[in-house]
Design a binder for these strands. Sequence first.
DNA 1: TAATTATATAAGCATATTATTATATGTTAA
DNA 2: TTAACATATAATAATATGCTTATATAATTA
Lengths: 108, 108
Amino acid sequence: MAYEPRIDAMVERFKVLGDKTRLRILVLLQGRELRVCDLTEVLSISQPGVSQQMRRLHKAGFVNERRGGQWIYYTLNMENSLLALLIPTLPKSEEDEKKIMMSKGCPT
Amino acid sequence: MAYEPRIDAMVERFKVLGDKTRLRILVLLQGRELRVCDLTEVLSISQPGVSQQMRRLHKAGFVNERRGGQWIYYTLNMENSLLALLIPTLPKSEEDEKKIMMSKGCPT
DNA sequence: TAATTATATAAGCATATTATTATATGTTAA
DNA sequence: TTAACATATAATAATATGCTTATATAATTA
């Protein structure tokens, strides 16, 4: 493939990773699937805020989404080789883990 | 180490990688050392522009610098594990390679 | 069907980012 | 010491980013 689109894609991927909110989301997604409504609580940002971040993560190929009833479930896309490479290097937050466990979130 | 400073450092590293100019610099630094004046020509940005990017790359631990006379020589810091992991995944630009070879740059 | 809940999109604002120009610092050599 | 060249820092302007609120779309359930 030509150079320009490839380097631009790399830049975009790193831009997506270069944001605290999005990194926190990726870390939280390890080992579980989450919905937008689960994340609003943990991250303390608005629903549209989370929704926009998920769209960005999805567009970059870092997360898969599937609709399940009225929810959309997001999971890590471990087939993404960059993500597979980097995920093990990301620090986990006990704080965020606690919050996600405690949260009654959106009802099941 | 505590979580916050670690995740913040990761975010900063990815931010540094999430810029086309800086990625081009890292790719060009593979296998050679370069000075600011070498890069201004290839990148077509001003000397202070390059200087600022190099400072950012250095602060993030991606490049080493050493003074040699009136110049400062930059090299990749392959001891940086994130960089070591990612460098092989970056596409090279024949265009940029040509330019760096051709360039009379700053005299030796 | 109408009401409720989840998510997406649009517009707007505050802040961050990347370049520029102007100027200062540091090194070499006449 | 002075002139010439390389690099660094400061101030600034244009653009990008990440959130917000308001509103639209989609699925569920009374």
